[in-house]
């Protein structure tokens, strides 16, 4: 490779690095969903919708809301290894959520929060609630079983 070719390649590298706009994660819609865990069939139904939707658009957060007085020693669950199936608590959690259905989405259990602030802040009453983050703004669809009609086949968001 002669010197001029090298210089051209280096200049191309510099131009591409600094001039080409960086990919803005916000320009593509990102979907989160909050599901009430009071009814296992409801959770399963919405998770199947999540799977369908994830073929069009990334579903980046699935949050399951469980009334605190209904379940388990969540602290023990929190200390257990994510997605392991050894503990009794995890069996209980499995009775509410089909954890395997989340595997296909590439999601893992990240944390357990003991508060209702998200629900209160967004004034949510009905499950599921979908939150679409698009171009720096949130579009909330509360109580809608599916929001796939708001996305084109190529994942563009139409509100």
């Amino acid at each position: 490779m002669n010197v001029y070719m090298k210089k051209i390649l280096i200049m191309t590298f510099l131009i591409v690095s600094f001039v080409t706009p960086t990919v803005n994660a916000d320009s593509k819609p990102l979907v989160s969903v909050l599901i009430s865990a009071k009814d296992r069939s409801h959770v399963a139904d919405i998770l199947s919708e999540v799977k369908k939707l994830s073929k069009k658009v990334p579903v980046v957060n699935v949050a399951i809301a469980i009334p605190g007085d209904e379940i388990l020693d969540l602290s023990a669950l929190e200390n257990s290894k994510a997605n392991s199936s050894s503990t009794n608590n995890l069996d209980k959690l499995n009775s509410i959520i089909d954890l395997k259905s989340l595997d296909g989405l590439g999601l893992t259990r990240t944390k357990i929060k003991y508060d209702e602030s998200l629900i209160k802040r967004l004034r949510l009453s009905y499950s599921p609630t979908w939150i679409v983050k698009y171009r720096g703004e949130d579009y909330i669809f509360e109580g809608y079983r599916s929001i796939s009609n708001h996305f084109t086949r190529t994942g563009n968001f139409e509100y």
Partner: peptide, 19 residues
């Protein structure tokens, strides 16, 4: 910035029961 641009609500038989 996390502005709420739209909040559509539809009554559903499933709700978030706050303690």
């Amino acid at each position: 910035s996390a502005n709420i641009a739209m909040h559509k609500r539809k009554v559903s038989s499933h709700n978030f029961s706050i303690s």
